[in-house]
């Protein structure tokens, strides 16, 4: 009987001691991509012209610290993608890509920043296929939480 009590004692200790080892709050919040601002660009259904450079603008927020972000423009000629936005845009007919625009880049955000106004210059070559494209914003925070924003845009 003593042995059993001892065993239970050890068990109880193990549970209690582990309770106290619980450390401070960990970050479980996702970063936020905010494109509701008046100067945010592109937004859902925006149009961009070939042979010109446009400026990407969005504001990013996180409760602890932002990580980095990536931007990606790829064609949606096959209508494969749908966006994260409620509003839907008018689409051209399905077509085959010849020389679709492809843009992938990643950007750093200064360390320890909670709010960040992101801007990036992106130039669209004059010889790419016009049509429906998809603009992806992927934002992480320092802990590795990620938020996606997928926008439908048109290259004219």
């Amino acid at each position: 009987m003593k042995k059993i009590k001892l065993l239970l004692g050890i068990l109880a200790l193990a549970f209690i001691s582990s309770c106290s080892s619980d450390n401070a709050e960990i970050d479980t919040e996702y970063p936020v991509v905010d494109i509701s601002g008046s100067n945010a660009f592109p937004i859902q259904c925006s149009t961009i012209e070939r042979g010109k450079t446009f400026t990407f603008k969005a504001s990013f927020n996180d409760n602890v610290a932002l990580g980095s972000y990536s931007l990606d423009i790829h064609h949606n000629f096959d209508h494969h993608t749908h966006s994260t936005e409620v509003e839907s845009c008018e689409m051209e007919a399905v077509k085959k890509p010849v020389k679709p625009m492809l843009f992938i880049n990643n950007y750093t955000i200064p360390d320890g920043v909670k709010n960040y106004e992101a801007t990036a210059q992106i130039s669209i070559p004059a010889d790419v296929d016009p049509g429906d494209y998809h603009f992806m914003i992927r934002l992480t925070d320092k802990e590795g939480w990620q938020t996606l924003k997928g926008l439908s845009i048109k290259i004219l």
Binding site: G67, S68, L71, I104, N105, N106, W145
Partner: peptide, 12 residues
Amino acid sequence: PTSAHDIYYGAG
């Protein structure tokens, strides 16, 4: 999960 993105194979 890191805070980085891959811009080649990973397409962002």
